[in-house]
């Protein structure tokens, strides 16, 4: 097997493992039916399958903005993970989403996120959501994530 094949196999294995972490172990991701489609350096693609319980406007069957924002938040987080030399806990600091056009009823939404800068404490991400092509986006987002966040700070009763 060539080195390229090895790299591809390793990447598919990582994708499978991360999908288990992202989709199966995160209850909200599982409830939304989100899945990772592909991963690359500082880059992630995720899919949100269309589902009736995610509809925001019952007249039109268009997905709720909240479902799209959950997808973009998760996809941005995945891109941050792919930009880090080693996995550390991360937390969304802020996320701004522009809704460019309604998602088409009955169709899956794809999000593509890219982490374009990592500093010691903060990672910066941008993302687009679309059906077929990034050139025809449904939504775009920019966000920042804190790196190496402490686990369970509130559980120790110290507040934040």
């Amino acid at each position: 097997m060539s080195a390229a094949d090895d790299a591809q196999t390793a990447r598919l294995e990582l994708l499978r493992r991360l999908n288990r972490g992202f989709a199966e172990m995160v209850p909200h991701n599982r409830a939304l039916g989100m899945e990772l489609v592909s991963l690359d350096d500082a880059d992630a693609v995720m899919r949100l399958p269309y589902a009736p319980h995610l509809v925001g406007n019952p007249d039109t069957g268009v997905l709720h903005g909240g479902a799209v924002s959950s997808l973009m938040d998760a996809c941005c987080g995945a891109a941050v993970f792919m930009a880090l030399p080693e996995p550390v806990p991360i937390a969304t600091l802020d996320l701004r989403i522009d809704y460019l056009k309604p998602a088409a009823p009955g169709r899956d939404v794809i999000a593509h996120a890219c982490c374009y800068k990592v500093t010691r404490n903060v990672a910066f991400v941008r993302s687009v959501a679309f059906h077929d092509s990034e050139d025809d986006p449904i939504a775009s987002a920019v966000g920042a994530f804190m790196l190496s966040t402490k686990l369970g700070h509130w559980q120790r009763g110290a507040g934040t």
Binding site: M25, V26, P27, H28, N29, A31, L32, H64, G65, G66, A67, S69, S70, L71, D73, A74, P89, T92, L95, L151, G152, Q155
Partner: peptide, 17 residues
């Protein structure tokens, strides 16, 4: 609604929604 089962913490997307 949980996004981080280790903490546990609500999913940012749910809070956004």
């Amino acid at each position: 609604l949980i996004g981080n089962p280790a903490l546990p913490a609500l999913h940012g997307g749910a809070i956004g929604a």
